[in-house]
Amino acid sequence: MKWSEICIHTTNEAVEPISNILHESGASGVVIEDPQDMLKERDSFFGEVYELNPDDYPKEGVYVKAYLPVNSFLSETIEGIKQSITNLVTYDINIGTNKVTISEVNEEDWSTAWKKYYKPVKISEKVTIIPTWEEYEPVKSDEVIIELDPGMAFGTGTHPTTILSIQAIERHIHKDDFVIDVGSGSGVLSVASILLGAKKVYAYDLDDIAVKSTEINAGLNRVENKVISRQNDLLDGVADLEADMIVSNILAEIIVRFTDDAYRLLKKGGLFITSGIIQGKKNEVKQRLEESGFTIVEVNQMEDWVSIIAEKS
């Protein structure tokens, strides 16, 4: 099969919404090439190491690449993607250069090459994420191993927003907590919650592929009986649940839409762990959380990304 690579030159802030647009448009893989990856202190990623080629990266901004099958609908699909990305400015998202280029690639080149960069990564004091195709022996007796199959549709679990989320879950979760995961994606936060002590997780995502991905990864980690994955628009219509913790690694623009529902579904003293927040949106999210009745407990940052932990006082 022939595939077309679409490359968008954009900003770090726009990476996640553009990735979502590409996925919803039928992309069979997403690659993010950020020049900051070559400069960062690897200690901040607990020893994650790979060899990067500077020629693959832009001088400024970020490349987001996706792969689409070459068919009669390709030109229409690409035009739709371009329009959806341009429309992000209406949500006050900086899309930067927004230069789009198209090239043809062989299936074998993109479907397997990316795997060589995805190795076991220790992302917190206890948690190590490993891909399904890698062998790994735990270093410590209390190490928590999450086996993940990103399936090319979701992240590998090593993005700063995911790391911030899992580190927060690890610090604050208690044995037998009941957790709600909003925007579950690959299900990595749901799986992490169970392996770190939660009794049950309800995982919600609007995308049915995300629902299936969560189910697959819960099964890989043998927690499928404790993770209930459902298709749902954020927390709309969710009732009769009382959670100890709600986690959500989405975008600031989405988080502010359901803070009232999060407050409603949390027990008194329960925590709302939010991530996926670009630095420039931090105060907007904090203000909305406080308007819903939350007290801000922690604000943590990694690179340009922020995680906010709020308590239902």
Rank of each mutant, 00 (worst) to 15 (best):
P35M: 08
E41S: 15
V105R: 14
L164F: 10
V100E: 06
K116L: 10
T132S: 10
K116H: 10
S165R: 02
S75N: 15
I163M: 09
G96I: 11
E33T: 11
F46T: 04
L39Q: 12
S165K: 05
S111N: 11
G155S: 11
V31C: 10
L68K: 04
I166C: 04
I130F: 00
D149W: 07
S111V: 14
D149G: 12
E147N: 06
N106K: 11
D92P: 12
S84A: 15
D109H: 11
Y57C: 00
T162I: 09
K59V: 11
P58F: 14
Q36K: 12
D92N: 13
N94G: 04
L39Y: 13
T90S: 15
E170C: 11
E41P: 10
K65Q: 03
E51M: 02
Y118I: 00
E76A: 12
V31K: 05
K126I: 11
L68S: 07
D142W: 08
I85D: 03
I32W: 03
Y136H: 04
Y50Q: 09
G151P: 13
N106E: 14
K82H: 13
E143T: 03
Y63Q: 03
E48L: 04
Y117W: 02
T158Y: 01
P138H: 12
N98T: 11
S165G: 05
P150H: 06
P35Q: 06
W114I: 01
A153Q: 13
V105G: 14
I166P: 03
D37A: 15
D149S: 13
K122N: 09
E137Q: 03
N87V: 09
G61W: 05
S103K: 09
T162P: 05
E79I: 13
I130Y: 01
A153C: 11
E135G: 06
P138S: 04
S111K: 08
P54Y: 02
H159Y: 12
W114R: 01
V89L: 14
I163H: 01
G155H: 10
E48P: 01
K82N: 13
G151N: 12
P160N: 06
I169H: 09
W114Q: 00
T101P: 13
M152V: 12
V100G: 07
G151H: 10
K99R: 05
G80F: 08
F154I: 05
I145Q: 05
S165H: 07
Y57D: 08
G80Y: 09
E125I: 08
S124V: 07
T156C: 01
